[in-house]
């Protein structure tokens, strides 16, 4: 079964968790996908191996960047029909608060979808979604 078939099956079953299973890096990060009343969300499970500042301790900036990029790509895969997996053109990440090594969530919106390019905004948070620890916007190539 190709990755595209796998995506089609996950969408047909309404089960986004299956998407992350086929991406090795998602497994490495401890990233899972879920659906709630507001749509698709990503979760990275709290883990000491994700720390970039042992003094605080705080999550590595690269972990938050990875989570935000994953959240944006999975959102595009989930919400829109594309012939290929979207490719990241660029991302601009704002680090708002230090993240502790606990469960961290991310969710996004497709700000604009063109024929070839989509613009996506994403936010990451820990206990309180109204108090994001990082935010990003990026452009993704759809075709």
């Amino acid at each position: 079964m190709t990755f595209e078939d796998h995506i089609a099956e996950a969408k047909a079953a309404g089960d986004p968790a299956r998407l992350a299973e086929k991406v090795p890096f998602a497994g490495f990060l401890g990233l899972s996908l879920g659906l709630d009343g507001e749509g698709l969300f990503c979760k990275v499970a709290g883990d000491e191996k994700l720390v970039g500042n042992p003094t605080l301790p705080a999550l590595h900036g690269g972990v938050l960047g990875s989570l935000l990029e994953c959240a944006a790509i999975f959102l595009l895969i989930w919400e829109i029909e594309t012939p290929t997996i979207p490719k990241t053109i660029n991302m601009s990440i704002d680090y708002l608060r230090s993240g502790r090594p606990v469960d961290t969530f991310a969710r996004g919106v497709v700000t604009k979808q063109g024929r070839r390019v989509a613009n996506v905004r994403v936010e990451a948070w820990q206990e309180d979604a109204r108090s994001p620890i990082a935010a990003a916007h990026g452009h993704f190539l759809l075709a």
Partner: peptide, 17 residues
């Protein structure tokens, strides 16, 4: 660390890190 299982490309988050 692969982000795209079809091509074996590393995930962008690895490069960001």
């Amino acid at each position: 660390l692969v982000g795209d299982p079809r091509s074996g490309l590393l995930h962008g988050g690895v490069i960001t890190t």
